Amino acid sequence: MPDSFTLALHSDRPVADAQRSLASWLRADDRLHGTVTAAAEEEASVLLVAVGDAGVAMVLVQALAGWLTHRRDDVTVTLSGPAGWSAELDVPRARDMGQVTALVEAAVRAVAAR
Rank of each mutant, 00 (worst) to 15 (best):
Q99V: 13
A44W: 10
T69W: 04
D73V: 05
T69P: 04
D73R: 08
A28S: 15
V49C: 07
V51K: 03
R95E: 12
E43H: 14
L48F: 09
L64I: 00
L68S: 09
A94C: 07
A28E: 09
G81R: 00
D96F: 03
M97V: 15
P92A: 06
V49H: 04
L47R: 09
V59P: 00
E43N: 13
E43F: 11
A38H: 06
A50W: 02
A106C: 05
T69D: 08
T78P: 01
A107N: 03
E88V: 13
A107R: 04
D96Q: 13
R93V: 09
T35W: 01
A54F: 01
T35F: 02
R27L: 09
A44D: 14
A54G: 12
H33A: 15
A94H: 06
E105T: 10
T78I: 06
S45D: 15
E105H: 02
Q99K: 14
L48A: 08
A110S: 14
Q62E: 14
E43Q: 12
R31K: 06
D30A: 14
M97P: 09
V36M: 05
V91M: 13
V46R: 03
H70S: 09
D96H: 13
S45Y: 12
T78S: 10
T69R: 15
G34R: 00
T101G: 08
R27I: 07
G55T: 00
A87Y: 07
R109C: 08
V104W: 01
H70T: 11
L64N: 01
R95S: 14
M58H: 12
T101H: 15
A106W: 05
Q62A: 13
M58P: 02
Q62V: 11
G84R: 00
L64K: 02
A102C: 04
P82M: 01
A102T: 12
V77F: 03
V77G: 00
E41Y: 07
S45V: 13
A44H: 15
V56D: 10
D29A: 12
L48P: 00
V49M: 04
G66M: 06
